[in-house]
Design a protein around this nucleic acid. Sequence first.
DNA 1: GACCAATACCTCGCCGTCGAGGTATCACGT
DNA 2: ACGTGATACCTCGACGGCGAGGTATTGGTC
Lengths: 175, 175
Amino acid sequence: MLEFAILGFLADAPLHGYELRRRVAALTGHVRPIADGTLYPTIKRMERADLLRRDVQAGQTAAPRHVLTLSAAGHAELRRQLRTPDELFITDENRWFTLLAFLHHLDDPAAQGAVLHRRLDFLTQPASFFWDGDRPLRADDFPDNPFRRGLFRIATATSRTEIAWLREMLTALTR
Amino acid sequence: MLEFAILGFLADAPLHGYELRRRVAALTGHVRPIADGTLYPTIKRMERADLLRRDVQAGQTAAPRHVLTLSAAGHAELRRQLRTPDELFITDENRWFTLLAFLHHLDDPAAQGAVLHRRLDFLTQPASFFWDGDRPLRADDFPDNPFRRGLFRIATATSRTEIAWLREMLTALTR
DNA sequence: GACCAATACCTCGCCGTCGAGGTATCACGT
DNA sequence: ACGTGATACCTCGACGGCGAGGTATTGGTC
């Protein structure tokens, strides 16, 4: 997840770790802040895997900045993950949003459309938060529980908006 | 997270592990399926912490079922977590939805209202997925990136719906 | 009678993330 | 000259969750 976000942001532009941290925090950290102790080991791991290059820039600011640049292998890995994302990236809203933030890096409208289609399929499947055996429960099944009713109301509104957008996008992409 | 969902479902009714697994999967697994190897060790941990009791029911079905019942300490722990949730439960949509699913177990309208208010405060804060220094970027800042525009459109619609619902609920709760 | 799927529970090793600590430099106020 | 806050990077122990394995029983099929 974090690795994916790093690939995405570095594909936008080379950055040093601290700035990367701020951007990742804004994108996902709005929701789930990212710790120092997570970021730097991840960068090291990606460096060892040759996904990125590190150029130390001494001077200027306080501490020497390590400017991170995506390698060719890094670009390839980003495109691979964008083209064939894990199921979690389709179903988990946090991950899906991150995917969407970088989908423009996949320079192939058909492949982009395929990804959007997977999300649309997921959203249009019958689903519920609660079941009675095989019967999906709805808001009306909780007349005395305003919180669960709210849950359904918010989820329905969100998914309607997104489905509408996905249909628009798919029409535009295949035209 | 998983522990919280278990507390919530067992507060609804005593369940055996397998059924618990299905319910947790429907609530969060819609988004993030939960593995066997996560559930059972968690149950054990909670049993050791006296949050729940286990009664083995031999016979009937295939393997002997372990019916799990929330203890008084378990109920207290659930209420404690509902009353003073970690920040992550307010900001992360997945966690927030789980919280909402069980907020009715907090039998105190004022405390319920306080939790809703925290969420409302979070949603009405200025926020963006992307920043240019201190300036939050908007959909119009990405004229050539339909995916990021979509991101903004979906996020805005979701948050509007939820804010409206929260305001309604808060009026109803304090009346 | 043999086989297989479904039910139900369990173990273990691995990995990503967190949180609390630490280091060093520069800018700024007093 | 001194302290403080911001910048920037790093380490390490702990923990939650995953995935791949395993066991045992029941009920149905060939």
